[in-house]
Design a protein around this nucleic acid. Structure first.
Lengths: 130, 130
DNA sequence: TCCTAGTATAAGTAGCAACTTATATTAGGA
DNA sequence: TCCTAATATAAGTTGCTACTTATACTAGGA
């Protein structure tokens, strides 16, 4: 039912920016407070603290990072949910993959196939964008 | 000091656009001539043939699609190389990953800061920085 | 050869997103 | 309480990029 969906869209949109990818790489090494991220990224890309804060917001809303408050500090870390959405999207290109429904159905018992095909529209995928 | 990939950078940049993601999804179903892609994407997003052609160019240069000429037609298909670069980038977030990139970023976090701060113009576009 | 189909490139424009500086918020210490 | 540190938000600016229309290329058929 997760039609490889909105989560992957948001995640790819967010990861389309090199600064945000850098932030993800950094957080991949471990949790860090926003200030440390700003300092490192600022040094690397020459951007300000607000700029980094705005990037962190985008990553947050894309489900790619988590935040944990501690005093006035906010510790950011990688959120596996967003990354999982990306991996799921990539799976469609794996060998033998023919469509989102097929992938779902393969995981389910084969007997349930007809029933599912009967009570839902044939091509759910097409509704991505207007 | 090589990043996990310039290839991954280009691929993520390319996949940051929803139209190009849709093209990838379409090609994931099988090879198609540029005209068919343009027709389907045009119907879906309301964009012109040149627009789609430009998107295909970006995907090509990112190593995400392959082209095969046949007469005046050009058949596009998914290129696994670009996708592999994306998967490789994602692997760093797998449990217990420690790779070559970690070293680079650790160094960045430490000493290189002052030097970069010193010779960087105030209003630099972040894309000129490596 | 000329014409047409299929596709790519040229050139120009508009909108958005990634910045900027300035300020608001919030938690904790003196 | 006031001050400071840490971070987020506000408001404004600018350059990139995704579009547009027009045109150039290229292969094959009449």
């Amino acid at each position: 039912m997760t039609e490889t969906g909105p989560a992957a869209e948001a995640a790819f949109d967010a990861l389309g920016d090199p600064v945000r990818r850098r932030i993800m790489e950094l957080l991949g090494e471990g949790e860090r407070p926003a200030g440390a991220v700003a300092e490192i990224l600022g040094a690397h890309f020459g951007i300000s603290q607000p700029a980094v804060s705005q990037h962190l917001k985008v990553l947050r809303e894309a489900g790619l990072v988590t935040v944990r408050a501690e005093g006035t500090r906010r510790f950011y870390g990688v959120d596996d949910d967003g990354l999982a959405a990306v991996r799921l999207w990539l799976e469609r290109f794996a060998d033998g993959f023919t469509g989102p429904l097929d992938a779902l159905e393969t995981e389910l018992a084969r007997g349930k196939r007809e029933r599912r095909l009967a009570d839902r529209p044939a091509r759910t995928r097409r509704r991505d964008v207007a």
